[in-house]
């Protein structure tokens, strides 16, 4: 049990955040210094009973006051630009990122890899590779917090949020829930295991999923009878055309009944399964029943993986 004051860094972003807070901390200390130092000096020098020059007291000085309002503000604005740029860059994962589904529920973290490997409260990732976490919650709001990477993102029910990172160090790092979620909030944590690519491949083989996420989704698609409307093999051919075909849908723009157009991303597919009347595709009757009470988020993620596997549309 040693006293340490700085958390481990495990990514380039973490290093940048530490540089930001370190240098901004210096600025902040410089801004605070006059208050502490001058107050102390004045308390001593102008203490009652002590002889001091108290003549020509100023009741104010507009230029001075404007200066001490404006100069710190402008200095801080420099850091604002730095910090905001860093934040916005952190919003868009690189294209080659490895996507892992995260489903939070009271009080555990579930992870689904594209290969079909599933784990609870433990996340294995390869070092150096950008990892994109697509996250949603089964119940209340949680927040996936990886202190060693200096990132955190709330995980909401009914909505996908994402965070991404590229770990630079192998090792085991803490993974915590940062948004209060009920009784066992404080023990809703686990480990992030960053491995060398070889070790990660080994883990993948050993965690051995016989079927990929998309294959699981395909089974589910058949079991739920989705083909009845969307067509067998999701081609939309052999069924009466009651519902849009799903092949090549992913990433495509979809015209809606109300005239607007959305891109068929994860969120659109998710909502179309759970609350189908929210966005009805143009040219179709709103016939699909909502699956919100039938499916859990893991299954929805599998169905999405299946639909993704049917091919992506042209312009993403």
């Amino acid at each position: 049990m040693s006293l340490h004051f700085w958390p481990t860094q495990a990514s380039l972003h973490a290093e940048h955040v530490d540089w930001l807070i370190g240098s901004f901390g210096i600025l902040v200390a410089l801004l605070a210094a006059p208050v502490f130092i001058l107050s102390a000096v004045y308390l001593v020098r102008y203490r009652h009973g002590r002889k001091a020059d108290r003549s020509q007291r100023e009741a104010g000085n507009v230029w001075l006051e404007t200066a001490w309002a404006a100069i710190p503000f402008l200095l801080v604005m420099g850091f604002y630009v730095w910090s905001t740029k860093m934040f916005l860059d952190q919003q868009s994962p690189p294209d080659d990122a490895l996507t892992i589904d995260v489903i939070a529920k009271q009080w555990m973290w579930k992870f689904q890899h594209a290969g079909g490997q599933r784990e609870i409260n433990e996340l294995h990732v390869p070092v150096g590779r950008p990892i994109r976490l697509t996250m949603t919650s089964q119940d209340v709001i949680h927040s996936l917090y990886l202190p060693a990477l200096r990132i955190k993102q709330d995980v909401l029910p009914g909505r996908y949020t994402q965070e991404w990172f590229a770990a630079t160090d192998t090792g085991t790092f803490p993974l915590r829930c940062a948004e209060f979620c009920g009784t066992d909030h404080s023990v809703m944590g686990g480990r992030l295991v960053v491995q060398t690519p070889a070790d990660f491949a080994g883990w993948q083989a050993q965690a051995g999923a016989d079927r990929s996420l998309a294959q699981l989704g395909h089974t589910l698609f058949d079991r739920l009878g989705c083909a009845g409307c969307h067509g067998g093999n999701a081609q939309g051919q052999d069924a009466q055309v009651r519902a849009p075909p799903l092949a090549g849908l992913y990433g495509k723009p979809v015209p809606l009944a109300d005239g607007s157009i959305v891109r068929a991303g994860d969120q659109y597919i998710h909502d179309s399964i759970m609350l189908p009347n929210k966005q009805v595709a143009a040219g179709y009757e709103p016939l699909m029943p909502p699956f919100g009470s039938v499916l859990d988020e893991e299954q929805v993620a599998q169905l999405e993986a299946y639909i993704r596997s049917l091919g992506a549309g042209g312009d993403r």
Partner: peptide
């Protein structure tokens, strides 16, 4: 905003 079809 979120359910315009159903709302109208």
């Amino acid at each position: 905003a979120e359910h315009s079809t159903e709302y109208t």
